[in-house]
Design a binder for these strands. Structure first.
Length: 587
RNA sequence: GCGCUCGUAGCUCAGGGGAUAGAGCACUGGUUUCCGGAGCCAGGAGUCGGAGGUUCGAAUCCUCCCGAGCGCACCA
């Protein structure tokens, strides 16, 4: 099945065709003027332009065809040539009955048989997660959920930042702190401990110190460079120590993301492609793609018609070392080999990496590594504070991810304490509710903004139960649950609907789901789903506030309204699920 | 210098060729013998950064300008 606007577009398109006009002009969309009509088609004006005719006359020809169709309640011409449409209640009811019956509620399986790898999160070993990671995690996770629902085999890859100079910086810092450790004894031949001799907290603390020290002191930087090279050459002690870094970092990342319902299928890192680099290098050379430039080995990626300078991709630096361009290109090579059905490779990172990914994608194309694969970079902007500048703690430092979650949880706890929840909610359930409200507040605030834009992070606003927030949408979903429970009727199956004036706009809104889903997927835009979820919540709340359902005396209308509530709930839960937000049983 | 993004109500943001530019917050007023009032209903509030242009029609497309942010090979 398809969405209602798609069905209407076919009907109106056929009417255009009957007038020897292109059927695409029959595209129908939800009306901009709900006071006048439910749906509109603007094709008559375009057709008139092409045919040099009077647009109202063209529209009249279409209207004459459609007027007799009992799927429409009214068909009118307005203004310069708008075709204004209302569907008949019987047609609307029949459509929604199909939606009730359909487990996917009309959403198409557009990704069947295709594999997508999504690269998001951007976390690094030994580096504390900060607020910016919320963006990439929430968006990437949502895109994965959408693609999965569309039928893709969608895999999230953390692509951990576990390689490069930072690793040498940390190793050398530990070497200074604990020279007695066997990791630094080149002659040590025993087994290294399976457990790290330090805590994650120390690791996290060491990184910024080491990084700063290397900036301040050339000799210190040289130590880090040497350590990096030795690690990458497989020095036993360094590798063992480095493995501790990774294990502790992954444990910390899991602690941070699990409460938010975020996970990865692939836990590889930059280091995992290290062994592939020689063969890729040979391959690039044999293809004549790799060239020497100022002592470095690069891949030229500028193109004819470029309106800007696109620098070459740095493959080997002049000292022979790999860069993140090297590992990103090698990772494409690896993923394409690993997943034969791969069709989409999606990256969600800070938007400032846009040029880098353009270089990598062009290099992949030149090397022939990603033929017939869609390479897509979704960049996100900065999270700002209420002052409009990049979000910082009161002390002026970057806020850590866990502090942000804790702060949000505290707000959520406070809000819940103000509310009059049921008396029989015990502490475990309260914790569960608070966790879900926190997650909803954070993710909805994040995802309701367009990714490429900067946005203002305002805890008070996003945790509010009023306005366009996660908690408001959850609250409406919970009210429906409560209502359905009280009604105690089975509303899951196909139930004949009786649309009335009081519930028609909610019914119409529920026909829009596939359109919004398709739009969100096509443009990799979770905010479209947030908008729709909010509209459903609002429209339901209005309906709920304006007519009493359980006391409705007309049995057919009561049943119909309960079924509509059930369908509203199904849609809301589905959309929230796609956003990565869970609804508590009550709140 | 070249390029990218943004500029819409007091604030945060939708709308990206079509009708009277929409939401939320804030503000004002109304609303509860009844399904959860964390609700609902109503109201005021906008030279769509500016100037030209294309078009029957521009917040939307084009050009230029102004303002803000960001990026331009050996950090990732």
């Amino acid at each position: 099945m398809t969405s209602l606007t798609q069905k209407l577009s076919v009907i109106v398109g056929e009417a255009f065709e009957a007038q020897d006009l292109p059927r695409e002009l029959g595209a129908v969309r939800v009306s901009d003027r709900p006071d006048l009509c439910q749906f509109q088609c603007n094709g008559a004006m375009g057709a008139a332009k092409q045919a040099k005719k009077n647009p109202r006359e063209v529209a009249q020809g279409i209207v004459d065809v459609l007027a007799a169709d009992d799927r429409f309640g009214s068909v009118e011409i307005a203004g310069p040539g708008f075709i204004n449409l209302k569907v008949s209640d019987s047609y609307l009811q029949a459509h929604l009955s199909d939606v009730q019956d359909n487990i996917r509620m009309g959403i198409a399986m557009s990704g069947g048989g295709q594999t997508a790898v999504l690269d998001y999160g951007g976390m690094n070993v030994a580096k504390a997660m900060h607020v910016g990671h919320l963006r990439s995690l929430a968006i990437g996770d949502c895109l994965k959920r959408m693609m999965r629902f569309a039928g893709y085999e969608a895999l999230g890859d953390i692509h951990l930042g576990d390689w490069g100079l930072q690793m040498g910086q940390i190793i050398s810092e530990f070497a200074i702190r604990y020279p007695q450790w066997p990791y630094f004894d080149a002659n040590f031949e025993g087994e290294y401990s399976a457990d790290a001799p330090f805590e994650y907290s120390e690791l996290e603390e060491v990184y910024p110190l080491a990084s700063q020290a290397c900036k301040d002191d050339e000799a210190r930087l040289e130590l880090a460079r040497v350590a990096t090279a030795e690690l990458q050459n497989g020095r036993r002690g360094y590798v063992a120590l480095w493995r501790h870094f990774i294990a502790l970092s992954i444990a910390d990342i899991r602690r941070n993301i699990e409460p938010l319902g975020i996970d990865f299928e692939i836990w590889k890192g930059e280091s995992d492609v290290n062994d592939l680099i020689p063969e890729i290098s040979d391959d690039l050379k044999s293809k004549g793609v790799l060239e020497e430039s100022n002592g470095a080995q690069v891949i030229a990626v500028e193109r004819e018609g470029d309106n800007k300078d696109v620098p070459p991709l740095m493959f080997f630096k002049s000292n022979g070392a790999a860069t993140y361009g090297t590992t990103d290109l090698a990772t494409i090579y690896d993923r394409v080999k690993t997943y034969p059905a791969l069709t989409h490779l999606v990256y969600e990172t800070d938007i400032r990496q846009n040029l880098h990914f353009e270089q990598v994608f062009r290099a992949a194309e030149r090397a022939g590594y990603a033929d017939d694969i869609t390479l897509k970079h979704i960049g996100h902007g900065t999270i700002n504070g209420t002052d409009g500048k990049p979000f910082k703690t009161r002390e002026g430092k970057a806020m850590t991810f866990r502090d942000m979650v804790v702060a949000c949880r505290e707000k959520a706890d406070a809000r819940l304490a103000e509310a009059n929840l049921d008396d029989d909610i015990d502490q475990d359930e309260l914790d569960d509710i608070a966790a879900k409200v926190t997650c909803a507040a954070l993710k909805f605030a994040e995802l309701s903004n367009q990714a490429h834009m900067d946005y203002v992070f305002d805890l008070d606003r996003m945790t509010s139960f009023e306005g366009k927030t996660g908690p408001y949408v959850l609250y409406q979903a919970v009210r429906i649950q409560s209502l359905l429970k009280k009604a105690g009727v089975d509303t899951d199956g196909r139930i004949d609907l009786n649309i009335t004036d009081a519930d028609r706009s909610l019914a119409l809104l529920l026909t829009e789901l596939p359109d919004h889903f398709d739009m969100a997927l096509k443009h990799y835009s979770p905010y479209v789903l947030c908008d729709y979820a909010y509209k459903i919540a609002q429209e339901f709340s209005s309906f709920y506030g304006n007519c009493h359902i359980l006391s409705e005396e007309d049995e057919a209308i009561r049943t119909s309204r309960l079924a509509l509530c059930a369908l509203t709930h199904r849609q809301l839960v589905l959309v929230l699920e796609l956003l990565g937000i869970e609804v508590p049983a009550r709140m």
